[in-house]
Amino acid sequence: MSNMKLLEIKKLNKSFDDKKILTDINLSLSSGKIVGLLGKNGAGKSTLIKLINDLLTPSSGEILVNGEKIGVESKKVISYLPERTYLNKQMKVSEVIELFKDFYQDFDEEKAIKLLKDLDLDINQSLTKMSKGMQEKVQLVLVMSRKADLYILDEPLGGVDPATRDYILDTILSNFNENASVIISTHLISDIERILDEVIFIDKGKIILQSDADKLRNKEKSSIDEIFRRMFKC
């Protein structure tokens, strides 16, 4: 059991009609890691994430979470922050909290309320009345307040100011525990690379590199951001 992988992806392919989106993805991830899924817009990051969350069906290949095929069980242990919100914006934050409580057994309401308070967010306010940055903070707080095995954050830094970015990174770090792993997809590498254990470069639907972040810096004598730019120069 102990060396069982948290996430294992084998020979995964995904096409829409006859367009190939992901080609032969093989990936394995153990607990206690913060992993950056890095790629340009349209590289296939979000498709891969949706497949892991069982929101899309693979054309071929398989995805295992804790050794089992994804499905009802894997949804219980994966906490997912989508790129675009699925919440009804007419709802008040307190109503969204109730929704999370109903949906997820591992949701820690006290923690969510404390984090929201730290951020000066009013739980009696409806999402429509909040700025985009505030809405993103609310969603991140909710996602990080679950006691999940795997957190998958799709572009958590898009569209927020630098101070909020710092807060988001802090929230990820301080809520991350050794039994869990975090996958963060982003194209804003320089903001986030400091907290990553591992990086995965994805381009045109293929994984072209997977490495320990510090080892890669050491080998290339430059930042992950720089290595990425060099590799994907237009």
Binding site: G32, K33, I34, D170, L173, F176, R194, I195, D197, D214
Partner: peptide, 14 residues
């Protein structure tokens, strides 16, 4: 340490 320095706990451990 990891939270104070804002780094990954695994990196701090190393």
């Amino acid at each position: 340490f990891a939270i104070t320095f804002k780094v990954n706990p695994n990196t701090m451990q190393k």
